[in-house]
Amino acid sequence: CHSECLGNCSQPDDPTKCVACRNFYLDGRCVETCPPPYYHFQDWRCVNFSFCQDLHHKCKNSRRQGCHQYVIHNNKCIPECPSGYTMNSSNLLCTPCLGPCPKVCHLLEGEKTIDSVTSAQELRGCTVINGSLIINIRGGNNLAAELEANLGLIEEISGYLKIRRSYALVSLSFFRKLRLIRGETLEIGNYSFYALDNQNLRQLWDWSKHNLTITQGKLFFHYNPKLCLSEIHKMEEVSGTKGRQERNDIALKTNGDQASCENELLKFSYIRTSFDKILLRWEPYWPPDFRDLLGFMLFYKEAPYQNVTEFDGQDACGSNSWTVVDIDPPLRSNDPKSQNHPGWLMRGLKPWTQYAIFVKTLVTFSDERRTYGAKSDIIYVQTDATNPSVPLDPISVSNSSSQIILKWKPPSDPNGNITHYLVFWERQAEDSELFELDYCLKGLKLPSRTWSPPFESEDSQKHNQSEYEDSAGECCSCPKTDSQILKELEESSFRKTFEDYLHNVVFVPRKT
């Protein structure tokens, strides 16, 4: 048989008469490798580009789960590009990614509803959504962080984005990388972005840091009482949809009607710091009717980097990364020049730590249904340095008659930039024990000054392991946590139920 035959053949030295091919099969003959313009397919066939392209389009058009959109890589027609490569849609070739590779997620039936953290986790790592997304989240724990972890990498949506009755959302900033909504599939009414009845939605994105392009379709905003109209108009300008909307697409009466839409800028007039305090004062603000001013709200939190936005980490279910302080308005003076500047002394802060701070007014709604208010920009203030805590785990070892090696770990709280350490030492008198000992005694162990690591005695271990207080009263049991108490109650309830079950099964009433 021919060298490319495997198993047997019907005619000697003829690659077209093989029972099976050793390498690849091409047009009725066995070959060692697939010549151009053919590609290896499933490690035994040679196919042309049209064959591989037909497989790709067949799966793409069917949208069946589990099928493969075949691509070409290293002269092979394979189910998908290997790690580190992405497909070129024009020629199906796998090309190296520039940075992290995109991950295209194809949605069944063309859309997916995100109504819980669990459903959001199914899209973790996706960068391109081939379909439409509907966000409908009523509640949950730590929602802002969970949504950002699972949806934060999405850069492109081919269909539309719909935010509907998501009472738990305060902001859409968890879509931190969303840059493009194509609108290839539109919501009824030709809408590519749809926001309806979101009672706590206050911000779409921080438009000073976020760009969003909507290729096709219109915007729809109705019944978002805490979303200011200025935020919607800003989205029109940034996304390129200005002029597409009709009169009733953006409701003037049901958007922002319960919001404090600040239209003035508060400026800080005085800032002073110490290692654990920050004193702030800002310019006074009074609405047209000074009785509408209820006070100020001061927001602050630790910020290692200057990239904080107002609604980071917030949701309507209680999660809030900001510390909020309510401040009463100052006494009002008739003389504008003698107006008191409101302020606040922030206490209990960490030394040498940068804080993000902003302040906003708290006002009631005027009778004319106009909203007044003022808010400052987010500023960054760093507390002063102070003395560091003591170095940890000092170790001293003498390696000769004239040297001592000293080692330690950095302090747990540096409280500033540590530039150097101060080492103090003092000579001590020799131990009298060394002169009084009889060095001729056998088995004498000389006193040693070398360091030995501390260890816990058996008594201390027994005390720590004991669940009861000892007789001397030195140790006591740790208080039980809520989960331990709940577990004990469940076990007790189970024992009672099981005992009742045994009584009912074992003891049967005697027939009379």
Rank of each mutant, 00 (worst) to 15 (best):
V104N: 00
E368F: 03
G140S: 08
A144L: 14
S239H: 08
R332W: 11
L280M: 10
I114Q: 00
N387G: 15
D335G: 02
S319L: 06
N320I: 10
A168S: 00
N211H: 14
L201V: 08
K267E: 08
S192C: 03
L169H: 03
T127G: 11
V308S: 11
D206T: 03
I379V: 07
S132F: 00
A374H: 11
F358M: 10
Q216H: 10
S321A: 07
A251F: 10
T127R: 08
K162T: 02
L265P: 11
H210A: 08
N399D: 15
K409Q: 15
L180C: 12
F365A: 00
K409E: 13
F296K: 00
N255V: 04
T254P: 09
K226F: 12
S260T: 09
I357A: 06
T383H: 00
H222Q: 02
I379K: 10
V128T: 10
T113Q: 05
H341W: 11
N190M: 15
C261L: 08
R165L: 04
V238A: 05
K209Q: 11
S166I: 12
I154G: 00
S119G: 08
T383L: 01
D289Y: 10
K103S: 11
N399Y: 09
A374R: 08
Q199Y: 07
E302D: 09
L133K: 00
K253A: 12
W207A: 07
I181K: 00
R332Q: 04
Y355R: 00
G313D: 15
I157E: 00
I129C: 15
Q121H: 10
L123V: 13
E246K: 15
W352Y: 13
E156A: 14
F220V: 09
I188M: 14
P287I: 07
H341G: 07
T361H: 07
L133R: 00
F299S: 02
I395L: 15
P336T: 08
P284T: 03
L227W: 00
I232C: 04
I395H: 13
Y167H: 07
L123K: 00
F175T: 01
Y305A: 11
D377F: 02
W282S: 01
L153E: 15
T383V: 02
C317N: 03
S208H: 06
H106T: 14
W352N: 03
R176K: 11
L298A: 05
W207M: 13
P342R: 08
L147V: 02
N248H: 03
L204C: 07
G240W: 15
E231F: 12
G131F: 02
H233R: 13
W408V: 04
A149C: 11
L229K: 06
K226P: 02
S333E: 14
D206Y: 07
N190Q: 04
S338L: 10
F220G: 14
I378V: 14
I154N: 00
T361D: 02
T241P: 10
L280I: 05
W352I: 15
I250S: 09
G189E: 15
S401P: 08
S338E: 08
E184I: 08
S116G: 12
S400H: 09
G159V: 03
N198M: 05
E231H: 09
S119M: 11
K242L: 14
L107Q: 13
G125T: 05
I188Q: 13
A303R: 08
F365G: 15
L280P: 13
D289E: 12
K177G: 03
L196I: 13
S158V: 11
E146T: 06
H341P: 11
E155V: 14
M346V: 13
S158E: 07
T273R: 06
L331F: 09
W282Y: 01
N307R: 06
G140H: 08
I135Q: 01
L161H: 01
Y300G: 01
E184L: 09
N248G: 10
G140K: 11
L172A: 05
F174M: 06
D384H: 13
E231T: 09
E283S: 09
A195R: 00
R179T: 08
T213M: 11
I114D: 00
S319V: 12
I163L: 04
N399W: 11
Y167A: 14
F174S: 06
K277P: 00
G159T: 01
T213L: 12
L107A: 05
K218V: 15
E156D: 10
S398P: 14
K209I: 13
D257G: 04
D367E: 12
G152V: 06
A316F: 08
K301C: 01
M235A: 15
N334C: 03
Q199L: 12
G343L: 08
I157V: 05
Q121E: 02
V381S: 04
N334I: 11
I163A: 04
R165E: 02
N142M: 06
S333H: 11
Y223T: 13
A120Q: 05
G313S: 09
Y167L: 15
F220N: 10
T353C: 15
I327T: 12
R291E: 01
V170S: 10
V238G: 14
K277R: 15
A120I: 02
K375A: 06
T254A: 11
V363E: 02
R291F: 05
L279Q: 03
P287C: 10
K162W: 05
I114H: 01
L107T: 13
R164V: 06
T361Y: 15
H233A: 10
L196V: 15
L280R: 01
I188G: 13
L229P: 02
M235R: 00
Y223C: 10
D328N: 11
Y355Q: 00
R182F: 12
D249G: 05
E109V: 15
L201H: 00
N190R: 05
E246F: 09
D335P: 03
Y191S: 15
Q199A: 07
I357S: 02
I232M: 04
L147C: 02
L133I: 02
L345C: 04
T383G: 00
S319T: 05
W322Q: 03
T118P: 07
Y270L: 01
W282M: 10
L219P: 09
L108A: 13
S338P: 12
Y194L: 08
G243A: 14
T113R: 03
I379W: 06
V128H: 15
G152Q: 04
G318S: 13
A149Q: 12
F193Q: 00
L331G: 15
L280S: 04
Y160S: 10
F296V: 05
I327Y: 13
L298W: 01
N263F: 11
G256I: 03
L180A: 13
T361A: 09
L280G: 00
S208T: 06
